[in-house]
Computed example of a mutant assay.
Amino acid sequence: MNSLKSQVFILIVLSIFGSAFGIKCWACRSDSDPKCGDPFDNSTLAIADCAQVGELPHLPGVKATMCRKIRQKVNGEWRYFRSCAYMGEPGIGKDERFCLMRTGTYNIFMEYCTCNSKDGCNSAGLVRVNALTVAITTMILVFMTRVFQ
């Protein structure tokens, strides 16, 4: 029983610290991978750890701390870009439900969304399971198994 408690404790600690080091974001472009568009299909994509993404040459010392999704229409063609973000503010007024929108001449439209509420938040509605939720669910199941034996 002590070994089981130790394993559950380690799982909880790892899930808490694992999420504290940085955000993970989807990184893709719909012009090279159609699954990157909307609806988003991450079945063949790996999620990028933004803490591991290098600095940009034009932003020395700035680290990626958010995710972003860019949706743009150029001459009638939609393109989607998902990546780690270095600058900006999540959503508008910190409300991630809202994105910045810009229009231009020659039928150009751009929507720029940033978020940092959870890993993979630039997936456009994909519900992801938090590691802490998995740990708590595991604890409950272990407890229930022990009680009803």
Rank of each mutant, 00 (worst) to 15 (best):
R82P: 05
T137L: 15
L56Q: 09
L59E: 08
T65G: 14
A27E: 13
R68Y: 13
E111V: 04
K24W: 05
C25G: 04
M66L: 06
R79V: 07
T103W: 12
N107W: 13
A46R: 03
N42E: 02
I140P: 06
A27F: 07
M1L: 06
V53H: 07
L14P: 00
A27S: 14
K63T: 01
R82M: 09
L56M: 05
I92V: 15
L141R: 08
G120H: 06
T138I: 07
C28M: 02
V147D: 11
L45V: 00
Y86I: 11
V13E: 05
N122L: 11
R97C: 11
K69T: 09
K5M: 09
V74K: 14
S15F: 03
I12V: 12
N107E: 13
W78R: 07
L4G: 00
Y112S: 10
F17K: 00
I92F: 13
I23H: 04
Q149Y: 14
D31H: 00
V134F: 15
E77G: 05
T105A: 15
L132N: 07
A48R: 03
S83A: 12
S123A: 14
F40L: 04
V134C: 15
T114H: 09
F109C: 02
F17R: 00
K24D: 03
E111M: 12
T44M: 00
V127Y: 15
K24N: 10
T137K: 10
C25A: 02
G18I: 01
L45T: 00
A135H: 02
Y106W: 10
W26S: 00
V13R: 02
G22I: 01
L100I: 06
S6D: 04
M66I: 02
C67D: 07
T114Y: 08
Y80N: 06
N107H: 13
T65I: 09
T103H: 12
A20E: 03
C84P: 08
V8M: 13
A46Q: 04
A46Y: 04
Q7G: 02
C67G: 08
M144E: 10
I16G: 04
C115N: 11
I136S: 05
G54K: 08
M87Y: 14
V74W: 13
C113N: 07
F40Y: 06
I70G: 08
E55L: 10
K5I: 06
A20M: 12
N2D: 06
I23T: 03
K24L: 03
G104Q: 10
K63L: 06
N2E: 05
F21T: 02
Y80R: 04
K63W: 03
P34I: 03
L141N: 03
